[in-house]
Structure formats: C-alpha cells, structure tokens
Amino acid sequence: MSWDLAEKLKVRFPEIELFPRPGHQPGTGNGERGTGEPPRGEVAAAAPPAGEGQTSPAVPAKRPAHEAPPAYLVPGAVVPKDKLLEICRVLATDPEFGLSYLSFVTAVDRPEAGEFEVVYHCYSHQSREELALKVRVPRDGASVPSVTSIWDGANWHERETYDLFGIIFEGHPNLRRIMMTDDWIGHPLRKDYVYKDPAWLVEVAKRRKDEIEGLGLGERA
C-alpha cells in the first residue's frame, strides 16, 4: 500500500486533489513518512507506541489525538465529477495502473458541507496496490456517471448506494432499489433520515396490543 499510484495519477490528471497526508510536503515523494499507514498493511507495526494520548487518560498528553488533523490511511484522490469516467477507464485499462478489481462503491453523507462523497475503492491483483477515488456532488439531485461499463462488479454496489443514499448513477443499466422494498420512502443512510412506521404498521401494532390486553396475555405469569 503506497501512494505511488495516486502520485502517478496526479501527474496524469493535474486537476485531481490527493487526500491530505500528514507529514508530507507535496513534491518530496512519498519515501519517509513518520505517520501514515504501516508497511504491507500489518497491524500498526511501524506506528508510534500504542495508546498515545487517546487511550490512557492518565497521560497528561499534549493535544488529545482525536483532535489532530485527519489521517488518511488509504491512498486516494478527490476527482472532479466530469473527469470520473475518463480517470476510471485509465485506471482499469492502462497497464501502468492495472486496477482491474473494484472493491466497493459507497457514499458518505456530509450535511454540513451540503454534499455527498461518492467513494470508489479499486485494487490491483498484480501490483497489490489500492487506490480510493472520491467524487464530491451536491446533496440536492446528486448524480454521478455510472462506472458499470468499466467494472462490471460496480453494478450492485451502485444500486446499493442509490438505494441507501439516493444518488443517481447515470447510465446504470438497472438502477432499482436493492436492499429496501421498491416502495420504500427515503434513503436510510442519509444522516437526516428519520424512520417512521408507515400508517398501516402503526394500525396493526395497535390492534395487536389491544388483542393481547383483551386476552390478559400481557400480564406476567
């Protein structure tokens, strides 16, 4: 797991924006980084001693670690929406990248910023490199182009993201709900989603309760 691919992509497409990396100045390559991810994805082998600040309250540490700037332990880049398809095609087909395996597609709701981040995570079985892509789209009428033409496996993942976030994937062959029922109202994984029992269910629950009380079954035996 290294940032090589992300750097390469940045050279090819200067308009993308790499995820911020702690202790990294742009242009110095990605050789020595104090923090960041441990080598070969092992459990925090190269990480600083465990329990730094955030674990033991006994240490009257400097700033609590959870207030530090965000640490991106997955190499990736934020790409503009209109370049997404082009970039993905390059990533999947260019042997220089060879990211032929799409791990997942998902989204993150950021209501304060008023946008969704659509996340793609791809992987190469040859070089064992990974790369995450993020696309920022406004929350209202969110839509991104579908990548099913590039990675076939994106099909269900995009349907799931559509179902749970309500993001439209343009050009998707079969954009229907996949997890929820077809008549479901709302998109559950949005941060502002509030579940409400539908009227008929409230009715049924009330009737059942009455029945049980009438039979005296609600009492403790």
């Binding site: 329990g51 674990t55 670690a65 965000p70 997955v74 990974e130």
Partner: peptide, 18 residues
C-alpha cells in the same frame, strides 16, 4: 490486551482494512 478506554475516541481519519 492493550490498555484502551471503554469509550475510545478514535482520531479523525479514514482507513480501509481488509
């Protein structure tokens, strides 16, 4: 077991573990 608080506050960031 390492010493970890019951209500652990995890630093800001993103990670993909597989």
């Amino acid at each position: 077991r390492a010493k970890v608080a019951v209500t652990l506050r995890v630093p800001k960031g993103e990670v993909y573990a597989r």
